[in-house]
């Protein structure tokens, strides 16, 4: 039998993982539903966001500047997202091999940025200061305030994203373009502008996630590689497309992974997760929450 403490510890670490994954995967899923491409550079966006924030806050040297650092990083990621959409995605829009070609081009962007980060910031290990310091007691166990912050901020960010897509004109425009680009054009929606906004938004989400993760882990150019694989698994689990499905799947995977780490160990957890994924796909090829599409 598992003790109550062990259970709370598991729950908390699962929630932290789930929060990180949910923010990461929702950006990936947003780009997929709107542009119909899979962005393999999404993971390196995460690392880049963390590095930019590190540079800004390190130069300033004050915790007070961390908010500024986040803002700068977010702005930088938005710009980069737009640039990348323009250069390596838009030229292929509407081509029959688009999915395959953009997998290639975004992989190339990943290689480029990962190496670029390594050359620019060097091999010395870095860590971001936590946004909030100290310890917090939660469910009878003590965790770092940063972890508690992540658990709280993720649902807020995701709710904001949902509200944006649901209530604002631009958000609805993004959904419209994803669901029927031709009909969207005929009511005066500029599809390219929506694509750019989507890509920028997704890059910002990735960058912000990187900042959160960057104070829990050491910064490396490959910071986002492993979360990216998890995000893939999540997006499949979530049934590709619906934001709610993706977010739900992210928390489930986070909790399952935390459970697997305590039971089968850190190294076997990814394999076990993958086997579960395959088992689920064999039973439900459309994902856990997905609808069967003709």
């Amino acid at each position: 039998m598992m003790s109550l403490d062990a259970f709370s510890a598991l729950l908390v670490s699962g929630l932290v993982l789930g929060s990180i994954y949910a923010m990461m995967a929702s950006g990936l899923s947003l780009v997929w539903t709107t542009l119909g491409i899979f962005n393999f550079a999404h993971g390196v966006f995460m690392a880049l966001g963390a590095y930019v924030a590190w540079t800004v806050s390190d130069a300033a040297g004050l915790n007070l500047w961390l908010g500024f650092a986040i803002a700068m990083s977010v702005a930088f990621m938005a710009g980069l997202g737009i640039l990348i959409e323009r250069t390596v995605v838009r030229p292929f829009y509407g081509q029959r091999d688009m999915l395959l070609i953009t997998v290639m081009t975004t992989l190339a962007v990943m290689m480029f940025l990962e190496k670029g980060i390594q050359m620019l910031w060097g091999p010395r290990l870095k860590q971001l200061r936590p946004i909030v310091e100290g310890k917090v007691s939660l469910l009878g166990i003590t965790i770092s305030a940063q972890e508690a912050f992540i658990i709280v901020i993720a649902p807020l960010v995701l709710a904001a994203l949902w509200a944006f897509l649901r209530w604002t004109s631009t958000g609805r425009g993004i959904r419209a373009v994803g669901q029927n680009p031709d009909a969207a054009k005929l009511i005066g929606i500029n599809a390219s502008a929506m694509f750019a906004v989507t890509f920028a938004l997704s890059a910002v989400l990735a960058g912000f996630t990187g900042i959160l993760l960057g104070s829990l882990r050491l910064l490396t150019p490959g910071l986002g590689a492993e979360p990216l694989i998890k995000a893939f698994i999540i997006v499949i689990f979530g049934g590709m497309g619906s934001l709610a499905g993706t977010i739900g799947a992210a928390y489930i995977i986070g909790l399952v992974e935390a459970f697997l780490i305590t039971t089968v160990g850190f190294y076997w957890a990814p394999s076990a997760l993958f086997i579960i994924l395959i088992a689920v796909l064999l039973v439900r090829p459309e994902g856990l929450f997905g609808r069967r599409v003709a």
Binding site: L99, V103, I229, V235, I236, Y267
Partner: peptide, 30 residues
């Protein structure tokens, strides 16, 4: 092939991609 023959499009990309990462994890862990 077991999962791949039942899947389509981007699912195949993701599963095969994840397979590579899985083998890497196995190699590193053992």
């Amino acid at each position: 092939a077991l999962p791949v023959i039942r899947l389509k499009g981007i699912y195949v990309v993701l599963v095969t991609f994840a397979f590579g990462q899985l083998v890497l994890q196995l190699v590193l862990s053992q």
